[in-house]
Amino acid sequence: MHPKTKKTIDRSLPVKKKKVVIGSRGSRLAIWQAEWVKARLLHIAPDLEVEIKKIKTTGDKILDVPLAKVGGKGLFVKEIEEAMLRGEVDLAVHSMKDVPTMLPQGLHLGAVCSREDPRDAFISRKKGEEFTIREFREIPEGAVIGTSSLRRSCQLLHMRPDLKILQLRGNVDTRFRKLDEGQFDAIILATAGVKRLGWEERITERISPELILPAIGQGAI
């Protein structure tokens, strides 16, 4: 084009929106996080079309085996990574603590959002308005504690070898139901996920990192 030639644009023609597809697990917490990212994308680019595609991962399907025995944290991202590599989704939203340190060739960590409280939450059963165990340090001898995390189990047993640690799998709502049914005296979850789903009042105590060190990236999306 000649330098003096002006390019005219017919603004009456519709401009096609750019569409972005977010890959996410289907749990309530995963969808909350995907919706949170979607809202921020639309805040930055209001004309963007954003779709959330639910993808079931191996970790969602295997609920009766400890994660450490079937592949660890990568179980929650593998199918979503494969969908990205096939071009079915444009980006994935994960809890940072579930993301392996090594990513497949062709994928990269695009962004880390502002971090929520990274601490673990100690949650005991309630009797009326009172917690049955009021503090983490008051856990009675031989109490049954539910967690799916090998990291938490090891640190708990290092401090309190008398405790009985049982596997606790399922989404956050399922874990609270199992606690309320009396299957456990207390459970340990990530504070961030509990807060995001509106269960903050159920937290008995946020555990100091000096007692139980949180997972790397816990609380970040």
Rank of each mutant, 00 (worst) to 15 (best):
K61N: 04
G87S: 04
K53E: 09
K73R: 06
P66G: 09
E35W: 12
V70D: 05
P46C: 13
V65H: 07
I80V: 13
G59H: 11
G71T: 00
A83I: 02
L75D: 10
D60M: 08
V70E: 04
L67N: 09
V89G: 02
F76D: 03
G71D: 10
L29Q: 12
A30P: 05
W32M: 03
L48G: 10
D64Q: 00
E81A: 15
K78S: 09
G59T: 13
G71K: 12
E79P: 03
D60N: 14
R86Y: 08
K38W: 02
E88K: 01
I44Y: 06
E88D: 04
E49Y: 07
V70I: 15
L85A: 05
L29T: 13
K56S: 04
G71F: 08
I80N: 04
G74F: 03
V70Q: 01
R40P: 02
F76R: 14
A34R: 04
K73T: 02
V65Q: 07
K69Q: 06
R28K: 15
W32C: 02
G26P: 08
L48T: 04
I44P: 01
G87T: 03
D60G: 02
V50G: 07
A45T: 09
I55R: 01
A30M: 14
M84S: 01
L63S: 06
L67C: 09
A83V: 01
W36I: 00
L85M: 05
